[in-house]
């Protein structure tokens, strides 16, 4: 079984301490998470946690069944690459200079990124995409001098009309 990365969406009750319960389980069971995002959902009762991690089938099975055991977890679903859309957002600050400015703008156009702040010393850029695209953009920016960057981690949703909350167990 190969080690590969997978994305899991978890609906949890929107209650005090729930995120701690989830992350404490990861620590206790030794799961190494690549990214984790939390946010509101269509329902005020629930938050959605999106987790991406690398591991084999066994890790994946363990993670899912351990998550399902947590009392505040209502739904756990793997979002496979073919069935889902995965995105992350990055804000990145690179050095601005007359000689590089045009090249940076070209990259911004090709990657469909945006310049969201401008000063003589730095450009602040925003980009959305799947992890590969964001990684590639970072590689492009490296020669210009990255001052600071932050990524949100992956959010993912299934294609089609269903909500994972309505899926049968």
């Amino acid at each position: 079984m190969s080690k590969n990365s997978f994305v899991i969406a978890v609906y949890v009750e929107n209650k005090y301490g729930v995120l701690t319960r989830v992350t404490s389980m990861f620590t206790r069971r030794g799961f190494n998470i690549d990214t984790l995002t939390v946010g509101e959902t269509e329902s005020p009762e629930y938050s959605r946690i999106t987790i991406s991690l690398s591991g084999d089938q066994t890790d994946r099975g363990q993670l899912i069944s351990q998550l399902k055991k947590l009392y505040n977890v209502k739904k756990v679903e793997v979002i496979t690459a073919d069935k889902g859309i995965r995105r992350e957002l990055m804000l990145i600050k690179v050095k601005n200079s007359p000689e590089n400015r045009a090249d940076i703008k070209d990259a911004v156009d090709v990657f469909k990124a945006k310049i969201v702040d401008y000063s003589a010393e730095a450009l602040c850029l925003e980009i959305t995409g799947d992890t590969n695209k964001v990684d590639a953009f970072i590689d492009n920016m490296k020669p210009f001098g990255i001052i600071e960057m932050c990524r949100t981690g992956i959010v993912a949703i299934e294609r089609g009309a269903d909500s994972i909350l309505s899926h049968e167990e």
């Binding site: 066994t58 099975g61 363990q62 069944s65 351990q66 399902k68 055991k69």
Partner: peptide
Amino acid sequence: DASELNKNVE
């Protein structure tokens, strides 16, 4: 408990 299956032994 489903999480016990294939946890320690395949």
